[in-house]
Design a binder for these strands. Structure first.
Lengths: 188, 188
DNA sequence: TTTGGCATTTGACTTAAGTCAAATAATTAG
DNA sequence: CTAATTATTTGACTTAAGTCAAATGCCAAA
């Protein structure tokens, strides 16, 4: 997966000037305060958000409880994928958990400029592939690791998460209760 | 997601003759007996399998237990996605659970013919998007539904699964023990 | 520096689902 | 058709993680 990320970065760095400009022409910088929403549940996701600064999360409500599906940092792309692709209302919220600056890329405009910029078609496919592999990995981990192991793996692979994100969100990302997370942390 | 499947079918039905021929030129029909493997864990997945007839499953081993990740029927595409995309050894087996006929599409050849057949680029993206949405849905269901609810949903959405697939595989697809599945079934 | 509001931890108890073992039922091969 | 396998069910017990409630710690604003 690291290899795949490198491919994506290489592609972006080698963008033609016109591709770069086209992309800028459909992006606009937006800022959100901590706690504000980039996308609400029920809304159709009509743009993707390239994080320039800060942290966001995707989550949905189950009963009264939140499940955090993704935590996104600088240079990650925040999208409610299924909603974006299928034009259906999103099950997920996208929320700023710190003050955030994003490049907001309009979906339809992006589709249009892809026509004349094959590198963007490439980018689209590579990013979708990356997200898909990440989903496969996440699903795999839920089915092979228990609470302690999932937390340990997170510590190992995403040490910045624990440094910058409140435990409530960490717990809901690992899909364990806050109390269990607290107990897990004493056992590491 | 149904809408997306229709898009895929529409695209395939409207393939240019040359695209159709190019695709055939990189495909070859293969047959597998019940129980045989289309792909072994540890192998790199270098082709995708379009199911023409029969049923296959993808699964991996966890401790001594199998987790079935996908059940594939006629006109589904069987691929070990992460392995296929990243050229890494597959964690998953792909196995025929009935006698099976597939169109085996060589990955590198497919990549090559995409160059001259934009419809195949389209197809590639659409199918990846579909699989990604399916993964999101599956992950969502594991985190919001308990064993009974997951089984009921399967009955509703995939009644053919229960008709054609041994309960061992159904259980391992729902990621519950065979005993729990048996108990769930008395409670429907 | 105090207070009110979060964030985190700890304790006691519950529960969904797993495990292990044994009993039936259903297929398949001879 | 009958034996032998294989698939499914049932029972008794265990366990990981959840729930609810209370205690403690930690800031941040007045």
């Amino acid at each position: 997966m690291k290899r795949h990320l490198k491919k994506i970065n290489a592609l972006i760095e080698n963008f033609d000037v016109e591709t770069e400009l086209a992309l800028q022409s459909v992006s606009k910088t937006k800022k959100y305060k901590k706690g504000e929403f980039l996308l609400y549940q029920g809304e159709i996701c009509k743009s993707s958000f390239w994080i320039e600064e800060g942290i966001t999360r995707k989550y949905y409500m189950n009963d009264k409880k939140e499940v955090t599906t993704e935590l996104l940092f600088k240079h990650d792309l925040a999208v409610a994928f299924s909603s974006y692709v299928s034009n259906q209302p999103s099950l997920e919220f996208i929320q700023a958990i710190t003050d955030v600056t994003v490049s907001c890329i309009d979906k339809n405009s992006f589709r249009d400029i892809k026509e004349n910029h094959p590198q963007l078609i490439q980018l689209d496919l590579l990013m979708t592939e990356y997200y898909t592999m990440w989903l496969e990995k996440r699903l795999f981990e839920f089915h092979t690791l228990n609470a302690i192991e999932r937390y340990k793996l997170l510590l190992l692979e995403q040490p910045d998460f624990i440094r910058h994100i409140p435990l409530t969100y960490i717990a809901s990302y690992l899909v364990i209760s806050l109390e269990t997370l607290s107990r897990v942390r004493t056992k590491i």
